[in-house]
């Protein structure tokens, strides 16, 4: 277990130090949300209405942006081969890498969401709902995305392909994340149903993601 802990700390250190690029995701998140009013106009009522959807889309794209670093950097410098050869099960290794990745790219998005939500005129209750859905939903994005990252790891220019492969698979997360956030904002539909389904999707992806990604890594690198 200590080896997994060491891996977690190593991955997080690599992500936040110079050249790690973890915080670029948050910056991207901010830039995308800033662009939206320029596209749809500065109508605050409209922005409030589409606010959760915009934030969710931006979070989806931002977490996708950082994904191709998940395995590609380790593949380049050869440490991925060492991880493959280690005695620790690859599924656990991959899961820990996913957790580290989420802590450095997903969690900052969740923290930044209330500040950015202010720009879109979201009130406190809607903010809380949005942050909660992002907190629960972004792990699903990371763990679904890691399958694509593992498939694309050995490819040159895998980034664009990664987006094409992963985005359709995230449709359910997007639907239930936005539905739960909107339920708080509009109060028309119950919050619990979409929120619990979102939790279920996250938990399922926590299981499926590492297994599929580990299988993909084993198949590709041999």
């Amino acid at each position: 277990m200590t080896s997994l802990g060491a891996l977690l700390i190593r991955d997080m250190r690599l992500a936040v130090r110079v050249g790690g690029g973890a915080l670029i995701g948050v910056l991207f998140f901010l830039v995308v949300v800033t662009l939206v009013p320029f596209a749809v106009g500065p109508d605050l009522a409209l922005l409030k209405r589409i606010g959760p959807a915009v934030l969710w889309l931006a979070a989806l794209l931002a977490s996708l942006l950082a994904l191709d670093r998940l395995f590609a950097v380790d593949h380049e410098d050869g440490s991925l081969d060492l991880l493959l050869m280690s005695k620790t099960p690859l599924e656990l290794v991959v899961a820990v890498k996913g957790v580290a990745h989420w802590l450095t790219t997903g969690l900052p998005l969740v923290v930044a969401a209330p500040l950015i939500g202010l720009l879109l005129n979201l009130d406190a209750a809607a903010q809380a709902g949005l942050v909660l859905t992002l907190l629960v939903g972004t792990p699903a994005l990371t763990f679904i995305g890691m399958i694509g990252a593992a498939i694309a790891v050995a490819l040159r220019r895998g980034g664009l392909l990664l987006a094409v492969l992963v985005l359709p698979l995230t449709v359910p997360v997007l639907i239930f994340g936005v539905a739960a956030a909107n339920a708080v904002l509009l109060g028309a539909a119950p919050f619990g149903t979409p929120f619990t389904i979102l939790c279920a999707l996250s938990l399922a992806s926590l299981v499926v993601g590492p297994f599929a990604a580990a299988a993909a890594l084993r198949q590709e690198i041999e």
Binding site: I147, G148, A150, I151, V208, A212, A215, A216, Q219, E220
Partner: peptide, 12 residues
């Protein structure tokens, strides 16, 4: 190799 990558994507 393409087949194995595509196979995993197909199953997912």
């Amino acid at each position: 190799r393409a087949a194995r990558a595509a196979a995993i994507l197909t199953l997912v």
